[in-house]
Design a protein around this nucleic acid. Structure first.
Length: 426
DNA sequence: TCTGGGGTCCTAGGACCC
DNA sequence: TCTGGGGTCCTAGGACCC
């Protein structure tokens, strides 16, 4: 069995880079992308990082004069745009290997097994160049015998401009040195808690972690941690996952643009999230029979706090929006208490199965067995063509005082005819 | 004034059954 | 005084990822 070879391709500052593609005057400018409700910075261009801004900083805390003086541009997050750009990147990557795992919106693993006769660093360079030509997005390429080492190589490539964004750690003479350079908190699979634990046990970098005894790692970090440590040693434990597994739960939740106090508003907002969740369910051709609704106040505020949730089961698995809207409204009535400033609500759909496996029932209307599916398909099609929520339910309300703030949203350049960029002859 | 949203996996412990 | 033990299923909580 030949050993595995993985490449991890990762877009640099993805959200900020997407904005720059369609706003060329932003190139070399500090750009930041905001979370929902324009609350915090979730993505930043290198130029913004250099000014001392970090992921997680509150947007309003950045001084207005500082923004003007440094030519900083902050945008609301435009997931429609980023999702579409992501598809273009992934489509390009499929030209470079038949085996691809789309790991996140801005990352993919490729298997390069069978490509060993090539100079893989050159191949990585070709990948980078092609993605740039097709999309205008810069990527980094890390190559290694395990996914975890490919991640290490990718980070090394990103942090060392002189190697131009491509690094192959396989059989590299400085491998140990690089593992020593890799601090534990940056290893894939080590988060805040584990990093703290490891450091308090004198383990500060990937090299030291790779030396730790199996039994100790197993005890402290479960089987997941042990797999990761083996991968650092060059033993591949994580396979490429090419088939996108069916979702086991679907969540839709959002913070409100401003605090909500009334039951009616809570129900409307939650109906909106519920609708989105069931839409996602239908996109995957699935049905579900369980719904959970949760609500919470703002835990950062010094005021009375309340959080609650409850679950309901549908008599039969369904993907018919009104089934879920009805259940959600009933749950909300049960868990809502007046006298609080609510910050957020959400809907989780679980107990999911493919629609072809849904049981039928002679005595009750079933999703696939009557007009319900036809109505849903029709609604989805109209909304797809005419813009989302052209056709919706009154349960979602009209005033929508709770709607999130997005004051600096860029156009949907690639997915809306109205927003498509126009080239003008001068 | 702010502090996102959407997922997965693993483990421990309780309920229940035989 | 002693009050099994093993298996399965479910849930909550904790860790991680982007």
């Amino acid at each position: 069995m030949p050993r595995d070879i993985f490449a991890l391709i990762d877009c640099n500052s993805f959200y900020a880079a997407c904005e720059k593609v369609f706003n060329p005057h932003l190139i070399d400018k500090p750009v930041g992308i905001l979370s929902n409700n324009d609350g915090i910075i979730v993505a930043l261009s290198p130029e913004l990082k250099k000014l001392g801004i970090s992921r997680g900083d509150a947007a309003f805390k950045i001084d207005k004069n500082f923004i003007l003086k440094n030519g900083i541009h902050l945008f609301s997050s435009n997931y429609t745009l980023y999702g579409d750009m992501s598809n273009r990147v992934m489509k390009t990557l499929t030209n470079f290997s038949p085996d691809i795992e789309i790991y996140s919106i801005d990352e993919a693993f490729l298997s390069l097994q069978g490509f060993e006769h090539l100079n893989l660093t050159d191949y990585g360079r070709q990948i980078k160049k092609t993605v740039w030509q097709h999309t205008g997005l810069p990527v980094s390429v890390g190559i290694g015998p395990t996914k975890t080492l490919a991640k290490v190589a990718n980070r090394f490539a990103k942090k060392h401009p002189f190697i131009e964004g491509i690094f192959d750690i396989t059989d590299h003479p400085d491998k140990d040195k690089i593992l020593r350079w890799m601090e534990v908190e940056h290893i894939w699979g080590v988060g805040r808690q584990y990093a703290k634990m490891l450091r308090s046990n004198g383990i500060e970098n990937a090299f030291q972690l790779a030396q730790a005894p199996d039994s100790w790692v197993l005890k402290k970090m479960t089987i997941v941690g042990l797999r990761m440590v083996k991968e650092l040693r060059g033993i591949s434990c994580l396979d490429l996952e090419e088939d996108i597994p069916a979702k086991k739960e679907i969540v839709s939740s959002k913070s409100f643009g401003s605090p909500v106090t009334e039951l009616n508003d809570m129900q409307e907002a939650t109906a909106e999230y519920c609708l989105r969740a069931v839409e996602k369910l239908r996109e995957e051709h699935q049905v579900a029979s369980q719904i959970t609704v949760f609500i919470t106040t703002n835990r950062f505020k010094n005021e009375p706090q309340y959080a609650n949730y409850a679950t309901a089961r549908l008599p039969l698995p369904s993907a018919y929006s009104p089934d879920f809207l009805h259940a959600a409204a009933t749950i909300m009535k049960r868990i809502y208490r007046s006298g609080y400033n609510y910050k957020k609500s959400g809907v989780m759909i679980s107990d999911i199965m493919h629609q072809s496996k849904a049981p039928l029932d002679f005595f009750q209307p079933c999703y696939l067995d009557d007009k319900r599916k036809i109505i849903m398909d029709c609604m989805d099609e109209i909304n797809e063509k005419m813009g989302s929520r052209q056709l919706t339910y009154a349960a979602c309300g009209i005033k929508k005082t709770w709607q999130m703030k997005r004051q600096a949203l860029t156009p949907s350049y690639t997915t809306s005819w109205e927003h498509i960029p126009v080239v003008k002859a001068i």
